[in-house]
Amino acid sequence: MTAEAKIQNDIRVALSAHGCTIIRTNSGSVKTVDGRMFIAGPPKGWPDLTGFRHSDGQLILVEVKNETGKLRPDQKRFAEFIQRFPVIYGVCRSAEEAIKLIEE
């Protein structure tokens, strides 16, 4: 099974070669010195990759999954929400799927 991190990197390279700027959406949490939790990054369910297509500035959001990966409930809610807007969104399991997504 292919690691999701490898698929993410493959997609980033492929979409960059196809006229897009794509970044990995980082998130995480840490405990501060005074014991509070600090959560960094976008809301739960936000896709793994965020970017835009150079030709028209179209926003691109890609949720990356490996061959057997399934969307979590928060990712499903995000997918339902974002499809109401004129953005490019999709779940991709390979660089080839991501290229098809931006070419549609």
Rank of each mutant, 00 (worst) to 15 (best):
E4A: 03
N26E: 10
D74L: 02
K31Y: 08
G35S: 12
K65T: 01
I99W: 04
R72P: 00
I39G: 04
Q8M: 15
F81C: 05
K31E: 11
A40I: 07
A17G: 10
T32P: 10
G51D: 03
G41A: 04
S55A: 15
D56Q: 11
R53Y: 03
E104Y: 03
T2I: 07
K76P: 00
S27G: 15
K65I: 01
T2A: 10
D56A: 09
M1F: 03
H54C: 04
P43W: 02
I11Q: 03
P86E: 06
F52G: 11
V64Y: 02
D74C: 06
A5K: 12
Q75N: 04
T50Y: 12
N66C: 01
P43R: 09
Q58D: 12
V30F: 09
A3K: 15
I7N: 07
Q83G: 11
R12D: 00
I39R: 15
T2W: 11
R93N: 07
Q83P: 06
R53Q: 13
A3E: 15
F52C: 10
I22N: 02
K44W: 00
A79Q: 05
V62Y: 00
L61R: 05
I23K: 14
F78Q: 04
K70F: 02
G45K: 06
G51I: 02
V87N: 11
D48V: 00
T50E: 06
E67H: 04
R72Q: 11
E103D: 12
L61M: 12
H18T: 01
N66E: 06
V13A: 09
I7V: 14
G90I: 00
N66G: 10
R24M: 01
Q58F: 00
A17V: 05
R93G: 15
S29V: 05
H18E: 15
I7K: 02
E4P: 07
V30K: 10
S16A: 07
I99D: 08
F85Q: 14
P42W: 03
S27T: 11
E4G: 06
D10G: 04
V33E: 12
A17E: 15
V64F: 01
P42H: 09
L49R: 05
G51S: 07
R53V: 01
I82R: 09
G28E: 05
A40D: 02
D56G: 12
G69L: 00
A17R: 15
T68N: 13
G45T: 07
E4Q: 13
A14K: 13
G57Q: 12
L71K: 02
I22A: 02
P73S: 09
K100D: 09
D56C: 12
T50W: 14
V91H: 04
E103Y: 00
T32S: 14
F85E: 11
R12G: 05
L61F: 08
G19S: 06
V33M: 08
